[in-house]
Amino acid sequence: MTTTTSPPVTDTSHVLEVADLSVSFRTEGGTVSAVDKVDLRLDAGEIVGIVGESGCGKSVMAMALAGLLPASAHVTGSARLDGSELLGAKESTLRRIRGRDIAYIFQEPMTSLNPVLTVGRQIGEVLQAHEQLSRARARTRAIELMNLVGIPSAHERVDTYPHQMSGGLRQRVVIAMAVACGPKVLVADEPTTALDVTVQAGILNVLRDLRNGLGTSILFITHDLGVIADIADRVVVMYAGRVVESAPVQDLFDDPRHRYTAGLLQASPKPDRYAGSDRLQEIPGLVPVLSTHPDACTFADRCANASAQCRTSEPPLVGYAGEPQGDHLAACWHPNISGHEENAEER
C-alpha cells in the first residue's frame, strides 16, 4: 500500500512533477501542437485545478501522464510520479501504474462505464488486476468502496448495471473505481461537467472527503471557474497549450495577472452584477492553433494590451513585483498588477 512516511529523496515533496511537457499530433495538415512546454507540480494531499477553454490542451496533458493518448501523439518532456518517470516508460510498467498510482475520472459518466458489466464487477476489476484479489473478495471491497463514495444501499447496487443508475451515482461509481487501489494522484477530467448542479456539489464533496481522508492528490480539470473556486487549493490556467498563470486559488480570483485570466473572470457571471444591465465581457477572437505562434504570446491576438514585444517573443512564466520566488506566476509581458499597471520593465 502507499505510505507517505518514506523520506523525500529530493528537497521537494511533490507527488507529481511535470516539466517541459509537450504533446503534438501528426495530422494530414502537418504537426499540430496541443500542449507546449507545460510545467506543473502537485503536492501530497493537494487539489490543483487546471482551467481553460475547450481545446486548450488540459485533457491531452492529463492523458499524456499515464500514456493514454493514441499512437499519433508525440509526447516529450518529463512527468515524475513519486520520483519515477512516466513518460517513455514501458507499456507494462505503465499498466501497473495506471489505476494503482495514478487514476482517472472522466467527464461522461454515461459512457465511461461499460454497459454490459455490473458496476461491482467494474470496480472489482481494478483490485483483481492490481492486488490479485479473488473475484469474491473484490466484490466485497467494491461494496466498501461504494459506501465510501456515498452510494446508498451499496450491497444491492453492486450487482446492478450502469444504465440502472442516475448520472450522479454513475460518477460515484467511476470515483470508487478510481480510488480502489488508493492512488497517489487522481486525475479528474471535468468530472462534474455533465451533471446537475446539486449532483455536482455532492461529487465535489466526495472528492474533498477523499483528499481529507486518504490524502489523495487531485488534478482537477475543468472550464468552470465556480467549481475551481469551490475545490482547488491552487489553480493553473492554460491557454492554447501553455500555462499562462499559476497561483493559489484566492490570489488568482483576487488578483488575476495574466490578461487572459482577467478576461476569463470578466466572462463569468457574478451575483453582484445585475442581469441585463451589466453585460458579461467576452474575450474577442478565437483560441489559436498553437503551431502558428511558436515565438509569441499565444494570447496576443485577442489581448487589448498587446504590444510588439508580445508578438515577437514568448513571455516566461515568472513571479512579479518583488516576489519572483512567490507562488503566483504568470506568463505575460504586460501583467495586470493591482496598483501599478503595465510595469513590465520592473521585472
Binding site: 499515464a66 493514454l68 499498466r95 501497473r96 501504474i97 495506471r98 489505476g99 494503482r100 487514476a103 482517472y104 472522466f106 465511461s112 462505464l113 461499460n114 476489476e125 481494478v126 488486476a129 492490481h130 467511476v174 473505481m177
Partner: peptide, 8 residues
C-alpha cells in the same frame, strides 16, 4: 479508455 486507465 476507462478500462485502459484502470490498468487492466
Amino acid at each position: 479508455r476507462t478500462a485502459k486507465a484502470k490498468g487492466l
